[in-house]
Every structure is written in structure tokens, then in C-alpha cells.
Design a protein around this nucleic acid. Sequence first.
DNA 1: CTCGCGAGTGTTAGCGCTAACAGAAGGAAG
DNA 2: CTTCCTTCTGTTAGCGCTAACACTCGCGAG
Lengths: 343, 343
Amino acid sequence: MAERARPGGPLNGARQPSLTDVAGRAGVSHMTVSRVINGTGPVRPTTRARVLAAIEELGYRPNSAARALVTGRTGTLGVLALESNLYGPASTLYGIENAAREAGFAITISSVSRPGRSSIADAVENLRGQAVEGIIVIAPHVTAGRALEAAPADIPLVAVGGGDDAPVPVIAVDQRDGARRATEHLLALGHRTVWHVAGPEDWLEALDREAGWRETLERHGAPVPKVVRGDWSSRSGYDAGRALAREKDLDAVFTANDQMALGLLRAFAEAGISVPGDVRVAGFDDVPEAAFFTPPLTTVRQDFIELGRRTFGLLAARMSGGDRHDRALVAPELIVRESTGPR
Amino acid sequence: MAERARPGGPLNGARQPSLTDVAGRAGVSHMTVSRVINGTGPVRPTTRARVLAAIEELGYRPNSAARALVTGRTGTLGVLALESNLYGPASTLYGIENAAREAGFAITISSVSRPGRSSIADAVENLRGQAVEGIIVIAPHVTAGRALEAAPADIPLVAVGGGDDAPVPVIAVDQRDGARRATEHLLALGHRTVWHVAGPEDWLEALDREAGWRETLERHGAPVPKVVRGDWSSRSGYDAGRALAREKDLDAVFTANDQMALGLLRAFAEAGISVPGDVRVAGFDDVPEAAFFTPPLTTVRQDFIELGRRTFGLLAARMSGGDRHDRALVAPELIVRESTGPR
DNA sequence: CTCGCGAGTGTTAGCGCTAACAGAAGGAAG
DNA sequence: CTTCCTTCTGTTAGCGCTAACACTCGCGAG
């Protein structure tokens, strides 16, 4: 009776103990062991103790593949993440991972370097190949939203940070509200209007923040200056700052994220423009460094951990049959610092 | 013949097609289908075409659990990540994910909020429960190194950013060399010595950077000032800056990361100390924002993508039987900017 | 005393797949 | 024409587990 080699077995070559091994050691049937492990069905306390001892002695670990094969459940969720070091997406990922782990789910990630219809479809396909039970898409792009229109209907999928019109359920921070808060804060300081350095046009968050800024200006009857567009990077904020430094009645600027605000501040410093002396500046995100910019930055804080939790919660609801197809918003908070302080 | 309900099946209730379904449709045996899918064994071109057509029509997707059960391979790697938004760890994660995906492996992450013997052991256990074929630990802590001493011997495990004495193979950026480059750069500018704002004592990278700085000073016969210790945060860099601002012959400062340098610059600005006029400052990491600090920061760049690739490569080698237990270093690069520019 | 019932345990089947081997068909070599 | 390969395809077994049902007790009710 030849021992068949296990191709992918453990390094030391020994076979992992199976339910049957444990059963043999405990002097019971494999079903009793299964019941002890899963808490299904009644088991006499003394038997349970014998089984647990056998499990301990053999170092038994359930075979997840076998379990998944028979139950049809893998206990795994897929997260489709944008490959970026942007503060928001990375923080959201940890929020999701935490919530999922607490609920007993594993997370496998599939990253996408550039969002696009095909790359997102590929990543979704990749995750499905890994038999995930549900998918969370972190890709706050216009293109991502469109790509999801072709999302498979037979697997629960939710998005975090998608737009109003996304074809899937979405949890997002209320970008418009955040932009409104920042803009109103600046207007309340007595400025005639507020300039805006926007994020890239293919990001929904950029569009929402811009819309929130625009709406607020219009509601207050303030003129709407021409938008300067950046790409989230400090470099683009710097370029925007150089351009804005040439404007005559520049008074207040709201940048769509903190990194661009940093570049803007740098450009203003080089141009001899004082913040908040000559111009007041507000950002968005509240990255941990924002309090130490020169000057410390007024900005809008997003609770990414909460965002992750809520997103997981929505997916969990969908997986257990909830058919809600809604959009939930997490409220942001304005953090006031010196960049919009007294002159 | 009752159709048994599939507990975790797809939302629409229909059973996913199996090999047998495809076989029936193509008029062959399930083995022929398996051979077509895996490219094992010869199949007549016309048969192959029929099978591929059937796969397409049914939307067949291999069941990874069944495959894992019989082959003993899951095609999944576990990454144990520190739950932090620090630039380095997050970037490394993407580097690993990329390399793994190219090689056909999936990545599941398990995050650890606070590194410690038990939390790391728990996370490793968690990953093993998911039947990963190998584990990569991103946890550049002293405690992480110690926790890995108890690492299971029957699963390949490598660490990224661990210490010389780690009980497992390690890929790391050469922190000492980076610190040496920064320190020598500052000394070459004519400064008598270089002060150091170090990272937390329980981080190996902090210790290595400090050691590299200290060795360099000693080799050049420069006095070794008292180390100011931070915790990587801008806040701690700010506090360090306030403390250093009181020193008399402060000339040059090397901070162990860029975030702390930002806080330091902020504190110096508030204290009326000009950089590089009065004091020259260098950091470590080259975060994307470093070029836009006030002033732009001289710093040490680490190639995290390369680090991730190399780490995956090492793990792959170990998984295929390589028994190397070595330590490989990735060279960093000094990026000179205004913070150490001419006065 | 019999019956019923619940607690506790065992037996069997089968999830979807690959490994191993067993055929069948056809051509080349003797 | 036989023999022996090579190419292609099919059959069978079994991976480790859970679902479903069958069985054996022991005890209380009728």
C-alpha cells in the first residue's frame, strides 16, 4: 500500500492529520469529531473532551478546501483595491480587513494599477476565480463606476466611494458635504469668494468635492472662479499654486486634498504669499501630517475606519440575502487650523 | 431525485456548472475536459475546440476548492501586514501583491494593529487556517523578529525588513547604508557633527538607521550627540524640533523618516530657525510629498516595489524547496534637495 | 411492559476535481 | 499479418469534509 506523495504538502513531508486520524485517536467516528469542531449536534461532554485532546495532540487543523468543497462557502471576501499610496484608499482597506476578520472572513486583495473598464473586469474575474463570496471595490473613479455596470450579477458586490449613479450599492464619505463645510468656513471668514484646486476629472471624489464647492458659492451668491485642476499629487498642487499666485484678488483657496495643499503652500511660500496672512487655504482628508504643514492646514477629516466597517456591513447584508441597493453616506468633519486662522 | 440546495451557492440559485456538465455538453468524459483546462496530456485539436466551446457556453469556472482538495495546493500566499499607513509598509504590500499575481498566486492579508508576540502568532495561525502556501511578514519590529522564533517550521515564511538576527530569511533595504549616505552628505557640507532624531526603539529600521548614523560619525571622528527619539509621527518630529531648537551649536539634523522631518521643519520655522540657512536637515523614505516640504527635503529613497518583488522571489524559492536562509539587502539612494542646499 | 422520544453516535453518499491506470485506435516496424 | 508502440480518451478511486439519515441506548409516559 504505497503512500501517495502529497504534491503541495507541508515541508517536512508528513501528511496533515485529517478528521479520520483524530477520530481514530479519540476512539470515535469522524462525524463526532466534526460535530465537536463545528458545534453541530449533541456530543457527550466526556467524548468532547477526548476529541479535543486528540485534536490538540495531533495538531489537527481543519482542511479549508474540503470544507469549502462540501459547504460551497469559502469564507473569503475579495477586495479590489487601487494600487496607490493615497491616504484614503489605504486606510479604507484596513477598516474593511478589520471588520471582515472580526466576522470570521478572510480578505484577499487584487490590486489594479490603472483603473479602466478592462482592468477592473480582469480583477473581478481574478477574484471570482478564487471563489470569493463577495467583492468590495475600492476604486472611486468614474471609469470604475462604468466598469461595474458589467459586474457579474451572481455574486454580491459593493463599492466604496462610488458615485450616486453607480450600478451597485455604495458606501461613501459625503464629499459634497465636506466641500460645503470647507467652503462655507472660508466664506464665513469674510472672503468674497473661494478658489478651488480640484482633483483629476476621472475621480468621483474630485467631481463631488468640486460640485460641493460650486454649489456653496452659488448658494451664497459668490462668483465662481475658474477651477484649477490637479492630479492629487503635491507636484500638481505646486503647479496650481504657481498659477494662482498670479491672480490679483486671490483671497482663499480650497484644495481637493491635503497633498495638493502642501504643494500649493510651497508655491505660495516661494512667491512670497503669506498663509493665512495674504491667502487662506483649506484642504481635504486630514492626513496625519496636515497639522505640521507650514502653516498647519485646515482640512476635512474622513473616518475611513468607519467607512470600512460600514462597507463590510453592507456587503454582509447583501450576502445574506438583503437586496438593498442603496447608497449610504458617512459624514466628514471640518478641522480648523492656522491656514485659515486669524491674520 | 431531489436537487440538493447549495448553501453558499450563487445568488440566482443555479448550480455552477461542473466539469461533468461541460463534459456532457461536449460529448467527452470529464477527464478530457480537465486535460484541456490544465494542458495535461494530449487532446485532439477538434476535441479541444468542442470542449472550449462548451466551457464558453456554460460559463464554466474551475472550482478552486475541489482543485485545492485534491492537489493540496491553494495557490494562495499570506501577507502579515502591520496595520499602518506608513509609506513603506503600504508600498511594500503592493510590490508583493504585484509580483505574486504575476506568478499566479493570490494574496490574502492579515493585519496586526500592534505588533507583539501573541498578536503575530495569532495572525500566522489565522493565515494557516486559510491554507496559505507561504507567508510573508511585513513587521519590521524587534518584537516581530522575536515572535517569529516560534514560527511554524512546516510552512515557508520570509520576512521583509527584519533584523540581521531574524530567525527567518529576510529581505530588507540597507538601512545602515542609507543612514550612512545621509550622514556623510551632511558631514561633507562641513558640519562638525550631525544630530539624529531616531524612530521608536522597537522598530528595527529605527535601530539600523541610528546605528548607521552613529558608525558614520565615529568613523569620521565626529562627536556623537545625544539621540532624540520619536515615534515616526510628525507630532514627535515637532516635539524633537522644539527640543533641538534649544541646542547651541545645532548645525545639521538627520531624522529617521520624512514625517518626523516635516514636524521638525515646522518646529524650526516657529522657532525662527532657517533651513538650510541655520540648520541643514535630511530625512529618510522619500515620501512623494518630501519634494514639497518647506524647504524641499533631502532624503533617502527606498525602492519598495523592488523590495516587494525580491521578497516574493525569496518566498517562491523557499516554497520550491530552496533551503536558503539568508538575508538580502536592497540599496537605497540619496536624494538631495534644498534642505541641505547652499546657504 | 410496551411504546415513544430525545440524546448521542455511526454509516453512507457525494461535493468537484486530479492521479493513475486501462483501454481503443491507428500507424510503423518486423 | 502480427506486434509494438504512440496518441488519444475513458474509468475508477479518493482527497477531507459535511448532510442526511439510521441506529442504539435509557428513561418516562401510557
